[in-house]
Simulated scan of single mutants.
Amino acid sequence: MSALRIGTRGSALAVAQSTLILDRLAAATGRDVELVTVTSEGDTSKASLATLGGTGVFASALRAALLADECDLLVHSLKDLPTAVHPGLTLGAIPARADARDALCARDGLTLDQLPEGARVGTGSPRRVAQLRARRQDLEVIDIRGNVDSRLARVGDDLDAVLLSAAGLTRLGRLDAATELLGLGFWPSAPGQGALAIEVREGDQPADLEKGLRALDHRESRLLVTAEREVLAGLEAGCAAPIGATAVVDAGLLLLSATVYRPDGTERLTASHGVTLEPGSLQSQLAEVDDVAGRVVDELLENGAAALAPVGGGTA
C-alpha cells in the first residue's frame, strides 16, 4: 500500500508541525506517511505579507497541490488559513490546540514594560503592530519577514525584540528564547493561533485516513477556533485588519471575546459574549458557536468597528 502524503511548506516550522501530524497519523492508521514539500509565493517573495495577500499566500500553492492529487492532506497553521471555504476541500481534523499566546523575545531577558524608550521591536503582523503601539507608543515597530531562526538572530543585533507565537517556538524547541508570554486577557492573539488544521479533499476518504482524522480531531479545540474564526469571517476582515480574538470553555460555558484595533493603536473596541454548550452532536454545538460569534460581530459593528479598521465594508 502506498504511503499517505502530507503536503507542507519547506520552512523549519512547517516541517516540524507536519512531522508532529505524520507521527500521530502513522500511529493511528498503521500506514507509512511521508512529507511532500510545496513552495509558495510567500516562501520566495521578500514583500510584506499584507502586500502579498496575507493569510492566503501560504495556503494557495498547498491547496493546488492537494487538488491535483500531489498529496493526500495538508497541515496548516490555522491562523494562516483564510476563513472562506475552498471549493473541493474541507477541514478533516483540528488537533488539540497548543499555547495561543504571543511571545516576546527580547535582548537581555527584558519584558515588554522593561524595554527602553525607543526600542526597536520586529513583527510582520498588523495586529501585533497595533497592540504594541497601544501599549507603548514610544516603541519603534519594524516590519520584518523571515523564518523563526532568522528573526531571533536579529535580536540584540538591529532589533531589541521580536514578537512570535508561543506555539511555533514550542514546536521548534525554541521557547527558551521567550522573555515574556503575553496574557490573552490584555493581548488577544490571532483567531486560531496555536492550532493546526488538517485539510483534505471533499468526498469519501480511504477508511484508514478517516480513522486517522477522527483520532486527531479535538472537539473542544475545533469549537474554540471556529468561534474565533467566525468573528473574522463575520467582520469580513482581511489580512490588514488588526483583530484579536480569544475563546475559552469554562464549566460548559464558551466565552468569546474579540478586539478590533485602529492600526496605529490609538483606539480599540472589544465585545464579549458567552453560550452554554449543551450536550449533543458536534454540529449542534457548532451552531451554538456560530450564534455567539454573530453576537460578538454585531456588537463590534454597531459600536463602530468599521471606522477603526478595514472590516465590514469600512474604509479605515
Rank of each mutant, 00 (worst) to 15 (best):
D264V: 11
F186C: 12
Y261F: 14
A251M: 05
R229N: 03
P206I: 10
D217N: 12
L223S: 07
C239T: 09
V200L: 13
Q193N: 15
D264M: 06
R222Y: 01
V260T: 07
G252D: 15
G203H: 01
L196C: 02
E202D: 10
L253T: 15
A195N: 14
G192T: 12
T259L: 11
T170A: 15
T226Y: 02
A207Y: 04
K211P: 00
A190D: 15
R262T: 10
D204F: 00
L181T: 11
Y261K: 03
R229W: 03
G234E: 12
T170I: 05
A241Q: 00
L169I: 09
G192N: 10
V225G: 04
A233I: 08
S221T: 13
A251Q: 13
S257W: 02
A177N: 06
T259N: 09
V225S: 12
R219P: 01
A241H: 01
P188E: 13
A247E: 08
A237E: 06
L224H: 07
A251G: 15
G183A: 05
P206D: 13
L255W: 05
S221R: 00
T170Y: 05
L232R: 11
L232D: 08
V248T: 15
E210V: 10
L253M: 14
E199Y: 05
A245G: 08
R174W: 06
I243W: 00
L216W: 01
L223T: 03
F186D: 13
A227P: 07
L256S: 09
G194M: 09
E199C: 02
S221G: 04
A197D: 07
G212K: 10
L223K: 10
L254A: 12
R214C: 08
T179P: 01
D204W: 00
V249E: 00
G173W: 08
R174M: 07
L223F: 04
C239D: 13
A251K: 14
L232Q: 14
L223H: 07
L182H: 08
R201L: 04
E180Q: 14
A190W: 10
T246Q: 11
Q193V: 11
L253F: 03
G244E: 08
V248E: 05
I243G: 03
D217F: 05
L181S: 07
G173M: 03
A227Q: 06
L213Y: 11
S257N: 10
A177K: 13
C239E: 06
E202W: 00
K211Q: 04
A178W: 12
L253Y: 07
R262S: 09
G194A: 05
G194P: 06
L255Q: 14
I198M: 12
G185L: 13
S221P: 02
I198H: 09
A233H: 14
L175G: 01
A245L: 03
A237F: 03
A233F: 15
E228N: 11
R222K: 05
E230K: 15
Q205S: 02
G194N: 04
P191M: 03
A247G: 12
S257Y: 04
A215L: 00
L184H: 07
E236K: 08
G203T: 05
D217C: 09
A190Q: 15
A178I: 14
E199K: 05
D217Y: 04
I198F: 06
Q205T: 02
E180N: 07
A177F: 08
T170P: 02
G192C: 07
L184A: 13
